[in-house]
Design a binder for these strands. Structure first.
Lengths: 190, 190
DNA sequence: GTCTATATGCCGATAGAC
DNA sequence: GTCTATCGGCATATAGAC
């Protein structure tokens, strides 16, 4: 009796993504992944070349999810650029907090071997730069974008790693920091 | 002939710190560390209880170094709070870029098991909060501090992970982002 | 496409002699 | 304080049968 075909590449990647989100990237072994797919570890190698390639695929998935989330956040009806940027940056934080493990794997753990070639954080958020230009001025839009990415990435990273241990309102602190940052650019541009 | 005494705990920790900075924390094995100390791996266990404790000690070392660097940066003669904060934040980035691997281990990799109990990032930078209060107002000083930490930590993290891949002047972008952030708080406070 | 069986390696950690 | 010897575990990966 032949072995039934029961899994494929996208399923494996999605399962890996899910397991990483549940238990952390460090805990994912190929044996565990295979078991979750209902097969044995060696069988995985009929679908993936090696573990690094698998993690690259998982990271591509994460990046696409983040891209979708940011695009959705941008669909705010307000034409005010500051309001749009605020919505996007809030959406960024919400995504990271909702998917801490996969976000972390894609953007902080980030072994070059596990990085998708074409996709990094920065080109992905190009649409933001256009809005940013409206409050920072065109010639500073790249710097302003980078600072915004740094602010939100840094905030969620410190937050998720438990580095903000003195209590207080983290939502409020994030909102205030984002507001101050955008306000600063607007003032400098006038 | 008895085996000579040739190493001790501080030496081992310092050596681990150095090896991590050279090759990355993931590459550090106890066997390699022992070899660098001129002994065999099992002998390490006469000095350390386990690897996690060793990494805790390494992280304490890193945190103390950062603390010293920030204190030195604060010794600017200018009484202007914004200038002092700028100097501290520049010093922070300079430290991280100069010690990427150990910085990363202490503040981003950061398994709770490897975290020194008493020392985390936030309480360490309390002096900054006092200066921050002068431009953000006392009631917002914690939020302002957290945003500043997020901005610099996020910037150096993205920078070191190669996420800023579109060229441009990173020093300038960092300076502009810090300036905008501090300016924003000052404006909001008046 | 899946299986069993196995190769190979490194890891952290322990036991006990000197 | 150091050593040799070894344990037990888990990892990625390959070979070849069904």
């Amino acid at each position: 009796m032949p072995y039934p075909a029961q899994t494929d590449y996208p399923t494996i990647v999605a399962m890996a993504h899910q397991l990483i989100e549940q238990e952390g990237a460090e805990q994912l072994s190929l044996a565990q992944l295979a078991a979750a797919c209902g097969i044995k570890a060696p069988s995985l190698y009929r679908h993936i070349p090696n573990k690094a390639a698998l993690l690259r695929a998982v990271n591509s998935l994460t990046i696409n999810e983040l891209f979708t989330a940011l695009a959705a956040a941008q669909q705010t009806t307000s034409p005010d650029p500051q309001a749009q940027l605020t919505a996007i940056l809030y959406g960024y934080r919400a995504f990271a907090l909702a998917h801490p493990q996969t976000y972390n794997l894609a953007f902080t753990t980030l072994d070059p071997a596990e990085r998708p070639e074409t996709q990094t954080l920065e080109p992905m958020v190009l649409p933001i730069q256009d809005i940013m230009a409206q409050i920072s001025g065109a010639e500073h839009s790249l710097a302003a974008l980078r600072g915004a990415l740094a602010l939100v990435h840094g905030f969620v990273s410190l937050e998720m790693k438990g580095q903000f241990q003195r209590g207080g309102d983290l939502d409020g602190a994030f909102a205030a920091a984002v507001h101050a940052y955008l306000q600063g650019w607007q003032v400098m541009n006038t």
